[in-house]
Simulated assay, not measured.
Amino acid sequence: MLTDSHIDRVVQLALDEDAPWGDITSETFIPAETQATAVLNAREPGILAGAEVFAAAFRLTDAATSVDLHMADGDHFTSGATLATVSGPARALLRAERIGLNFCQRLSGVATATRAFVDAVHGTGVHIADTRKTTPGLRAFERHAVQCGGGRNHRFSLSDAVMAKDNHLAVLTARGMSITEAINTARSRLGHTTSIEVEVDRLDQIEPVIAGGVDIIMLDNFTLDDLRAGVELVARRAVVEASGNVTLATVRAIAETGVDVISSGALTHSVRSLDLGLDMALHGA
C-alpha cells in the first residue's frame, strides 16, 4: 500500500512547504562544505513506523546524504535506543530534520497506540482495525503505521467496498425502501468480488440487514449487553464489527462480547506523536 513513489511524492510536498525558497538560516550560518552526522534517538519506548519515510526526507533533500536504519518498521524500541544514523552535508541534514522527525514521530505514535489496543484484546481472537478518520493526504502513511502496530486496515477509500451507514439508510427510508430491499438492489449492481457492510444502531435492524445477505454488519455505539445480543442474533451469518467510542479502557470488554472486529478512529485521529530526537555533530568535532 505504501509505495516508494507515494512516499517520495508526499515527502517532497512537505519539504517544499517547509523550505519553499531554501533554508535561509542554514545557508547563512553553515558553510556549504560542512559535513555532519545526526543520530535519531528514542526518548521514550514505542513501536517504530515511518523509517523509510524518515530516510526519504534526507534522500530527497540531497542525494549525497546517507541514512543507516538500525531498526525496521514494526520493531519495538526502548527509551534511549538509536533508531537511525544520517550522514552528509550539514545544510541538507538541517533542512530535512523537521520533516523527517514529523513523519516518524507521528507514524510511530500511531503504531504504538495500535499495539496497545492489540495487546489489550490478546487472546480473544478479535482483530483491531482502523477507520477512514485519517489525516487528509496521509491515509496510506497512517494505515501503514496501523499495520506496524499489529492492526488491520478497514476499506482504504469509498471506492473499495460498499458500506451503508446511518445517513445512507436515512435516505433510503425517506424514499420508502426497506433495508432488505435496498441491500438486494445494491447486490444486483455489484460484481461478485465486492463486499457489502451495513451499519446498524439498533437490535431490531439486524434481522432485516442479515436477510439482505450482507457480508459484514457493524454494530455502532451498542452497549455491551446489546453487543452480546447482537452477536447472538447474527449467529455467524456475517462478520460482526463493533465501532463507536472505542477506547483503550473499553476495548477488552467489547472484544469479550464475541464480535469479530473492533474498529477505532482513535488509532489515527487521537494519537500523540512519540518523542524522538535528532542529535547532530560535525565531522571531526
Score class of each variant (00 low, 15 high):
M177F: 13
S178G: 12
I179V: 12
T180S: 08
T180N: 07
T180D: 04
T180V: 07
T180P: 07
E181S: 15
E181Y: 09
E181C: 11
A182K: 05
A182D: 07
A182R: 06
A182T: 08
I183G: 07
I183H: 06
I183D: 04
I183L: 06
N184S: 13
N184H: 15
N184Y: 09
N184L: 15
T185P: 08
T185R: 15
A186D: 09
R187Q: 03
S188M: 12
S188W: 08
R189D: 06
R189H: 14
R189W: 10
L190S: 02
L190V: 00
G191K: 00
G191V: 01
G191C: 02
G191A: 01
G191N: 00
H192P: 10
H192T: 11
H192M: 09
H192A: 11
T193Y: 02
T193K: 04
T194N: 00
T194H: 00
S195V: 09
S195G: 10
S195L: 10
E197V: 04
E197Q: 09
V198T: 06
E199H: 04
E199W: 02
V200H: 03
D201L: 10
D201G: 14
D201N: 14
D201T: 14
R202I: 08
R202H: 14
R202F: 06
L203E: 01
D204T: 09
Q205R: 11
I206S: 03
E207C: 08
